[in-house]
Amino acid sequence: MTVAALLAIAVSGALLVALGARDPKRLRSSRHGANDARAASPPLPSAVRQAFGWLSLAPGIVLALLGEWWAFLIWLGAITAIGWTIAITAGYSSVSVSHRSRS
């Protein structure tokens, strides 16, 4: 069960990293005031974002459907903590990229 939970966290976490790193709104915000257009990666296309978003929830849905509530809770707690961490990390890295571009 621990393996199933870790696997679910790994899959969702990887998708969240991609979503956070290539989030269009965040990238648009970080480009604001930056002189260098190459300062950040291009955003993910909308369809890909939506697919990644649903896929990131899929491991949790599978665990719930299988009735593996223990693993589901671990997954839910972990991805919310990971998501918050990614949002903050990506946000601050955008600031530093933006500052570097301006200087």
Binding site: K25, H32, T80, A90, Y92, S94, S98
Partner: peptide
């Protein structure tokens, strides 16, 4: 749409608001 939106490099109010909203959004289920 705002789950990863943190406008930290701009004005102070937006920064505080975004930090609040992002933490609150991720924390909602919990």
């Amino acid at each position: 749409a705002d789950l990863f939106t943190l406008r930290l490099g701009r004005d102070a109010l937006l920064k505080r608001r975004d930090l609040h909203v992002v933490a609150g959004s991720w924390n909602l289920p919990f």
